[in-house]
Design a protein around this nucleic acid. Structure first.
Length: 434
RNA sequence: GGCGCUAUCGUCUAACGGUUAGGACGGAGCCCUCUCAAGGCUCAAAUAGGAGUUCGAUUCUCCUUAGCGCUACCA
């Protein structure tokens, strides 16, 4: 039984890359009838905010993909600490009493790799216990075996076989001096406890995986399968960030621009994954069936937005395709919702409304087009373009339109074809008269 | 600096060593058309560079270059 998790940390709104990670997890789980776990990784108390937690729910809610189990790491801290002290007890970890570096500049990057503080690593158990007993703050670090060094290896579902020498892995922190677990510890402790079988996450964690394997092994747990996803990046090749790239990175930007959740999901799937048979527009069912790690690319994918337009043109096209092919009874309520949001209301009964939507949707590409380009269909307060106004003011034009309206109203049916037929008939009659 | 990952049209991608290197978005043009769209057709557009293996490399190996990631008591 497959169990996968999506583990966002609430330090910002739901990021487009996170959304894709969630979608790929979801697709994989649903395809194999597994269990989808949503776990909020909120161990960084300084950076967590309620607002971002809300934004994550909001984004996931819009996508409409459900999860089966829910956890919050902040409610499971005892598990994490337990594992840290177990490792300490086993001698696989040790206390480091070095005061926290004031800022990153203090870190010895440039020259060579930083592996550990040998003094602290060599501290005797007695000495270590004594200092801890005395209340001296400490961080617990993993004691990576480097003499002799050995290869840590695993098979990644996307990137294939991976190996790294322990000589290149530093003694990473497990438990902070304030008693909070680090990401590595909390993530592994929970993956073990929640019996996660597949860890599907961003490629930025590919090299962290070696550390995680060390933790899993130290805990005596069986390894989950790992699959890392290529990152989503900006057109200039940098990683997507709110500061530099603004609203593009937020899922809600697409929602607010009138996107269909399915089209957005479809678009995101095509970034870094391919069904390999040239299909582009796909339903959720088709995506689920077609998804596999073999189809996932290994290089990063660019989200193609510009300074003036946060929307990727291909996403827009995909949305228009879904907009005009989806069942009208599914689309109509979404249009109605969008109209109401923009201060308009659908006229007529449900069937009439569906006809209107069905008639005009072929020329629109996002939901918001109905209340902007299609405004005249839903209210009397609209602006006629100057060119159109000239034609409208041509002698006899208004009278003709009135005649046309009467004919259209006389029909019980109202479709694109019927309107066109009426218009052509009227035009012919006029031509004959002239 | 160390370690790791990656490299096909502007962008997303296809091509289990043999293809005129395919598709899509976007762009250009033509057709359709009372307008604007939609739709149909056509065109331009790519294997980062260099060695090697091979009868033959986009594909396998190595080097270079470039980009990205990790190297935090962030995740």
């Amino acid at each position: 039984m497959i169990r996968a998790r999506f583990a966002p940390s609430p330090t910002g709104y739901l990021h487009i890359g996170s959304a894709r990670t969630f979608i790929f997890n979801w697709l994989y789980v649903r395809k194999h009838q597994g269990t989808m776990v949503l776990r909020i990784d909120d161990t960084d108390v300084d950076r967590n905010t309620e607002a971002s937690l809300k934004s994550i729910y909001e984004g996931l809610d819009w996508l409409g993909l459900k999860w089966d189990e829910f956890y919050r790491q902040s409610e499971r801290l005892h598990h994490h600490r337990q594992l840290a002290f177990d490792l300490l007890e086993k001698g696989l970890a040790y206390r480091d009493f070095t005061p926290a570096a004031a800022d990153l500049e203090d870190k010895p990057h440039g020259e060579g790799p930083w592996l550990c503080n040998p003094e602290m690593r060599a501290l005797s158990k007695e000495e270590s216990d004594k200092r801890a007993q005395a209340g001296e703050p400490f961080v617990i670090r993993y004691r990576v075996q480097r003499e002799p060094a050995y290869e840590v290896s695993f098979h990644d579902g996307v990137y294939g076989p991976q190996t790294k020498l322990t000589a290149d892995i530093e003694d990473f922190a497990l438990l902070r001096s304030n008693g909070m677990p680090t990401y590595h510890l909390a993530s592994c402790a929970d993956d073990i406890d929640l019996k996660i079988t597949h860890v599907i996450r961003g490629q930025d964690h590919l090299s962290n995986t070696f550390k995680h394997i060390l933790i899993f092994q130290g805990a005596g747990a069986t390894l989950p399968r790992f699959a890392h996803l290529p990152l989503l990046i900006a057109p200039d090749g940098s990683k997507l960030s709110k500061r530099r790239h603004g609203p593009v990175v937020s899922v809600t930007t697409y929602r607010d621009n009138g996107f269909l959740a399915l089209a957005y999901i479809n678009f995101l799937c095509l970034l870094g994954w391919s069904p390999k048979d040239n299909r582009e527009q796909m339903s959720l069912y088709e995506l689920t069936n077609a998804f596999s790690f073999e189809g996932v690319h290994r290089s990063n994918a660019v989200v193609n937005f510009s300074e003036t337009d946060p929307i990727d043109p291909k996403a827009l096209w995909l949305n228009s395709q879904h907009l005009r092919t989806m069942p009208i009874n599914v689309l109509a309520p979404l249009v109605k919702e969008s109209l109401i949001e923009h201060g308009l209301s659908p006229l007529g009964d449900e069937s009439f409304f569906e006809h209107v939507v069905d008639t005009i949707r072929t020329r629109f590409s996002v939901l918001t087009d109905f209340s902007t380009k299609g405004r005249a269909y839903f209210c009397d307060d609209y602006v006629i373009e100057p060119q159109a106004l000239d034609k409208l003011n041509a002698p006899g034009a208004r009278e003709l339109l009135r005649q046309l309206a009467d004919r259209i109203a006389a029909h019980p049916e109202f479709t694109e074809a019927s309107v066109e037929a009426d218009l052509r008939k009227l035009a012919e009659e006029r031509a004959v008269k002239a």
